[in-house]
Nucleic acid binder design. Sequence first.
DNA 1: TGTGTCGTTCCGTGTCACGGAACAAACATT
DNA 2: AATGTTTGTTCCGTGACACGGAACGACACA
Lengths: 241, 241
Amino acid sequence: MLDKAALIVESFRPTGGPYRLAELARRTGLPKPTVHRLAADLVRLGWLERTDDARYRLGGRLFELGSLVPRRRDLREAALPFLQDLFEATRETVHLGVREGMEVVYLERIHGHDALQLPSHIGHSLPLSCTGVGKALLAFCGTELTEEVLARPLPCLTPHSLTDPARLRMALENTQVSGLAYEEQEAVLGVSCIAAPVFAGGDAVAALSVAVPRARFRPAQLAPAVRTAALGLSRMLRGGI
Amino acid sequence: MLDKAALIVESFRPTGGPYRLAELARRTGLPKPTVHRLAADLVRLGWLERTDDARYRLGGRLFELGSLVPRRRDLREAALPFLQDLFEATRETVHLGVREGMEVVYLERIHGHDALQLPSHIGHSLPLSCTGVGKALLAFCGTELTEEVLARPLPCLTPHSLTDPARLRMALENTQVSGLAYEEQEAVLGVSCIAAPVFAGGDAVAALSVAVPRARFRPAQLAPAVRTAALGLSRMLRGGI
DNA sequence: TGTGTCGTTCCGTGTCACGGAACAAACATT
DNA sequence: AATGTTTGTTCCGTGACACGGAACGACACA
């Protein structure tokens, strides 16, 4: 029963809803009466909400609980000042992401009034190989995982996404040397990105990035800012000042 | 059974853990074998995690789901640029909060390297009457709720918290006239705060605030910035530019 | 060695989750 | 207006599985 409830809640990814009852039954593969009963329980618990037109969406209680997750909250809290610095230095959309399995999960995204239309919402996950943050993490996470990713077919979000393992391997090697990862229209058309890993010990525990409309992408000017922020956060996590 | 699982998850508020098995049994009032079985299920679902010392804490999946909650995500997304403006104008800790029942829930908090030690974590809730954001919301949320709050005993976080209904009523009337709410050491000793409501239609749907160490609290300089940010966000939510 | 608390496993009991069937209401199509 | 379709909802008999007391070994402390 817990599994069924979780199935319902997870079926709201990645949009959060709202969905109708029949829609939920279809998405989860559960019988309609079962969804009806469980959804009612979840609403009572505040995990789901009913919209004015009687559809279901994820509920506020879930937000409150999710915000408390220690591993996420602590890293986000520590990183925020550096994300601020990075934003003020670049005036562009900046990201904080971590690796979760073979994907990148975004913990924070800061932008000004001219927000880019990006798929990198907070809590959203994307393939490691298609994003700057993902490549920065992948380049510094141990050989076995790198090989695992390279072995599988590479996911493809745009026509520019890297699908050739050899090219990805080369990009990762460059990143390992330079400490910077680049991405050009591989996640969204028209948007380029530069990222740097954050270390706490040997491996990368997170990565920062700046996403910029392709037209005004100037890597040489962004690189020092991203690197500085990432190094600053790394030092902070190491327990420094 | 869903209720028991929810009880376990909710028992992690407000810290997020980690807690030992026996600790969870005590906090929830459930028998130890029951907690053991349910917690194992929750770990399998990613809603809880086990620390290296075998304790339980809230899991990453919960963060991802919570970030998708539409009502929260959309407001936060819309407000972020204005929070940025407010932060850059004041260089102090800025908040975005909404009302949830008779409490305020914080959706976002932005700060620099000199972060204040505040209880206003994202997702955390505090009494309406003890915070600047709460008072701004309370002053513009309809008479019936205001009276409800004033009728009950006022919660008390510090010796400076308002416990006299008459004084709170006066403060709210001032806020209704000026469009600004003040709070001085009522939530945390040594920290003062100024807040402004955000409107979308008749009632306040959110509020912004700036929290400042009491020593350098200069309301006259903060007021225009907070008001400007709140009005800008209000216009944006009304579908403006 | 004794005493407390810990996490974990077992298993008989009884409960409550389950979902097919049937329902009315809303909408779409002709 | 008549028909068909999809919607959300309720009912209820059946059986699976959640439940938690009891007992276990491991560990810490005195």
